[in-house]
């Protein structure tokens, strides 16, 4: 049996977690899930559609919202009582965090961000991302039980034909006050996903060092004309020219727009990690040898401070 931690937000199932469920189903073992908090009870039976037989729900009056260490404790308790061959979750911030707690509690290794998993006994082979997917690692996990997260989007969530709703089993984990000490106590707006939803934008006009601190005006104009968002490189956020919420890359936001316009960006691997899924990329750069040129579909070799205003004018003319 494989146990999958499925995340939810105040009762709404996390769609990414379904990818980890499907990854587990594909390994050919019965799949059970664990969810935390009574407010997961209504949504849990739906997991049957994805091949889950049993959905275990950790119940405790203190578990009204996300509490990572308590979640880890509850999952670890189930691992001890059910002895699954593997424990999976999706490699989201929460999924990785909960599994890290499980690994720490059970003193087991944890392999994060896996794109491939094969089961064994006493050791497991995994393929996992390093450098945000710019380097791929083949590794062996030496453990009685595998603890691993699946890289987001490495697996697709596939409904299983002829499935039945998952059976819900409630259980009460033994939680100390320390386990529930870390939990969400409040939420505020303005998380900063970026201007017009950077992650979801169809067009991203992105600027790097070559744009300069005062040069973002035309990028904003073009983004607005095309109904898109402004992005930037880390050099730009480090300099304080733009807010971090606009940073694209390994440590910023990952985007997959129809069009990515890279202005004065050299194309470091860490930047590319965030924009390689763009359908079309146009690069504007004074250096014809810049690395970005081998990722872009189209290039304009020139100074962004003169090229971009001309593009803004041409687009405005075309729209009117």
């Amino acid at each position: 049996m494989i146990l999958v931690y499925v995340d939810h937000d105040r009762g709404v199932l996390d769609e990414l977690s379904l990818q980890a469920v499907s990854a587990a189903v594909a390994l050919g073992q019965p799949v059970e899930t664990v969810l935390i908090g009574a407010n997961a009870t209504t949504a849990a039976p739906r997991l049957g559609e994805f091949g889950v037989t049993n959905a275990h729900i950790a119940i405790d009056p203190r578990l009204t919202d996300y509490a990572p260490q308590a979640a880890g404790r509850a999952v670890a308790e189930l691992v001890t009582s059910l002895s699954p061959v593997a424990v999976l979750a999706v490699g989201s911030p929460r999924g990785n965090e909960v599994l890290a707690h499980v690994g720490a509690i059970l003193d087991l290794p944890f392999a994060a961000d896996c794109t491939g998993i094969s089961l064994g006994s006493g050791s497991f082979d995994v393929t996992r991302n390093r450098w945000a997917g710019n380097v791929i690692e083949e590794a062996v996990v030496h453990a009685s039980t595998l603890i691993a997260s699946t890289a987001p989007h490495a697996f697709t969530a596939d409904p299983v034909i002829g499935s039945t709703p998952a059976t819900v089993h409630e259980f009460t984990p033994t939680l100390t006050d320390a386990d529930v000490a870390v939990r969400i106590i409040d939420r505020t707006g303005g998380g900063g996903g970026g201007g017009v939803g950077l992650a979801e934008a169809k067009v991203v006009v992105s600027g790097g060092r070559g744009v300069g601190g005062d040069g973002f005006g035309p990028l904003e104009e073009l983004a607005e004309l095309l109904g898109g968002a402004v992005g930037c490189s880390r050099v730009v956020t480090s300099a304080g020219w733009r807010p971090h919420a606009e940073q694209v890359g390994q440590t910023g936001t990952k985007v997959a727009p129809d069009l990515y316009i890279a202005c004065g960006i050299s194309g470091a691997t860490q930047h590319i990690a965030g924009c390689k899924n763009a359908k079309t990329m146009i690069a504007i750069n004074t250096d014809p040898e810049a690395t970005i040129m081998s990722y872009a579909d189209y290039a304009i070799v020139g100074d962004v401070s003169t090229v971009l205003p001309a593009i803004v004018d041409a687009v405005r003319a075309a729209k009117s």
Binding site: M281, P288, S294, Y295, Y298, A299, I300, G302, T306, A310
Partner: peptide, 13 residues
């Protein structure tokens, strides 16, 4: 790949 160079300067607009 290699990007298709579509111009140098404002004339590419």
């Amino acid at each position: 790949g290699t990007a298709e160079v579509i111009g140098s300067g404002p004339d590419a607009a």
